[in-house]
């Protein structure tokens, strides 16, 4: 199929982009890498009235490191994340997960901000941000605000971003560079969306008990979800034996939806497996 018709704007800067967002009527879709939006448009599942191409908005690009951590511009592509030592050192969880995200040609164009704004429940990036306690910087004509990842992903393709806002950047806290990281996903084929996946971070040295673990699953629910029960079970503990068993058992409290290839009970079982395997890799 071919995309339904739309209007196209390619503002030169952020002010221009925000002006369009606030002034224009209709369903305006910001266009970042387009790797998720374009398929939906090609099949006419998405029919925005206007595409707002952010390609020229310099303010949305670039990665900077500061005392509070990293600020990753929303238009940073996956391929740039993988190649940037600021990212791989400042957010090693992202480095760990990137090879599992889609395929090379998709990573060449797909952006971190696009993935976050879309909030696909099966995508890795929202879960990575939850596990790192990242924050999402939103910008509109009325100003900037920063929303914790925990408060950003609200449901199926639903986020805290208001229609007149853009995702400007992702903030990764400074301690993300020091925390232990784990990642595991079960995808039928390399690069597919996972049947179940988990991302986690924890404090403490390797081999030591997990300090303040943060555990986020994807591919299970209508959004990436924190597993607070498992976090509580594993807090300040070694991920083994009964503790690990309790953490896995706690996953039954997660809001798990089945999909085409796995009913909820299978997803729950796989969630336990990916948690065990991710922890074993830490």
């Amino acid at each position: 199929m071919k995309a339904a018709d739309f209007a196209y704007r390619r503002p030169a800067d952020l002010a221009g982009a925000l002006a369009i967002l606030s002034a224009e009527e209709g369903d305006i879709a910001p266009l970042a890498g387009g790797q998720s939006l374009m398929p939906m448009m090609n099949f006419r599942i998405a029919q925005p009235t206007m595409l707002l191409d952010l390609a020229d908005v310099a303010e949305l690009r670039g990665v900077t490191a500061g005392p509070d951590g990293l600020r990753i511009g929303a238009m940073t592509r996956y391929v740039q994340l993988a190649a940037d030592p600021l990212v791989t050192q400042g957010a090693p969880l992202i480095g760990l997960a990137l090879p599992h995200i889609a395929h090379a040609a998709i990573r060449n164009r797909g952006t971190i901000g696009g993935s976050v704004a879309l909030a696909d429940p099966a995508a890795e990036m929202p879960a990575l941000l939850l596990a790192m306690a990242a924050r999402i910087e939103l910008v509109s004509l009325s100003g900037r605000r920063v929303v914790a990842a925990d408060d950003f992903f609200l449901g199926l393709y639903e986020t805290a971003r208001a229609p007149d806002e853009l995702v400007a950047a992702i903030h990764i806290p400074a301690d993300a560079s020091r925390r232990r990281v784990g990642f595991y996903e079960l995808a039928r084929r390399h690069g597919d969306y996972a049947m179940a996946g988990v991302a986690l971070t924890a404090g403490g040295a390797t081999g030591q008990p997990l300090a303040s673990p943060r555990i986020a699953f994807f591919g299970l629910s209508d959004r990436a979800v924190r597993a607070t029960g498992a976090e509580a079970a594993l807090k300040d503990a070694q991920p083994a034996g009964d503790t690990l068993g309790a953490a896995v058992d706690s996953l039954s409290a997660l809001p798990i939806n089945g999909d085409l290839h796995a009913p909820p009970d299978v997803k729950l079982k796989l969630a336990g497996v990916v948690l065990r395997r991710a922890l074993a890799g830490m």
Partner: peptide, 12 residues
């Protein structure tokens, strides 16, 4: 879609 009907790809 080809994301739902799973054909064999190289990696597996």
């Amino acid at each position: 879609t080809m994301a739902d009907y799973l054909v064999p790809m190289a990696a597996e």
